[in-house]
Design a protein around this nucleic acid. Structure first.
Length: 211
DNA sequence: GGATCGATCGGCT
DNA sequence: GCCGATCGATCCG
């Protein structure tokens, strides 16, 4: 399978976000492939975007967003969660796409045991039986990072490098009718960028983090 | 199903 | 000090 290369990411962030939908995010962990289909993303674009981490300029934390496209920007929030972004546009311009949800495809048992070390092996969608539903496995930016073993060590890592342990594989594109857009999750305020429909998701996927 | 709240800590106003 | 691109538990209806 073809890995998405630098040219894919070195474009307008909204375009990259839209086109990342349906592509396959792959993490190689302990020699095993963990993978999911990207079903939900959000674009964060430049210092003028008041929801973007670069809104107050460059800092040590957001430095990766100012770096070259095709690299990861991984940050730590709420004292316990990590979130994964893919850096876009040209070096020097801070922009990225947040990966918000995946449909589980490969390495599901390994991902389950990372998310639920106690009873992760119990596969059940029935409430009260100790099992967890697959929609909870990768449905959320922090959830998918936990399942894939992604933390700050991946901040700044090149997803386009040969032998990368985290990358995106090309899959068949989806038609525009399959894509929905709306305001970004957790973004509040009345600025133009704050209400912009920069969240993209597959309309019919049951794996998006919120319907 | 929806609202609310606690956890937990790094970053920056 | 304050708050966050979140999650999961709990309470209510």
């Amino acid at each position: 399978m073809e890995h998405l290369g630098r040219d894919f990411f070195a474009r307008d962030t909204l375009t990259v976000a839209r086109e990342l939908l349906a592509q396959r995010l792959v993490r190689v962990l302990d020699g095993e492939r963990l993978a999911g289909r990207i079903v939900e993303v959000e674009a964060y674009v430049g210092e003028e975007d008041r929801a973007c981490h670069a809104r107050s300029g460059r800092t040590e934390r957001n430095a990766s967003m100012y770096g070259p496209p095709g690299h990861a920007y991984v940050y730590f929030v709420y004292g316990m969660h990590h979130c994964l972004n893919v850096v876009t546009e040209r070096e020097g311009f801070p922009a990225a796409v947040l990966v918000r949800a995946l449909e589980p495809l490969e390495g599901i048992e390994a991902m389950r045991s990372r998310r639920w070390p106690e009873r992760g092996h119990v596969v059940s969608v029935v409430e009260g039986r100790g099992g967890r539903a697959d929609v909870e496995l990768l449905g959320g930016p922090a959830r998918l990072c936990q399942a894939l073993g992604i933390d700050r060590r991946f901040d700044g890592v090149d997803l386009c490098a040969p032998g990368a342990h985290l990358f995106v594989e090309r899959a068949a594109a989806v038609p525009d009718e399959a894509v929905a857009a709306g305001p970004r999750v957790g973004v509040r305020g009345d600025g133009a960028a704050l209400v912009a429909p920069w969240r993209f998701y597959l309309r019919d996927s049951r794996y998006v983090s919120r319907s």
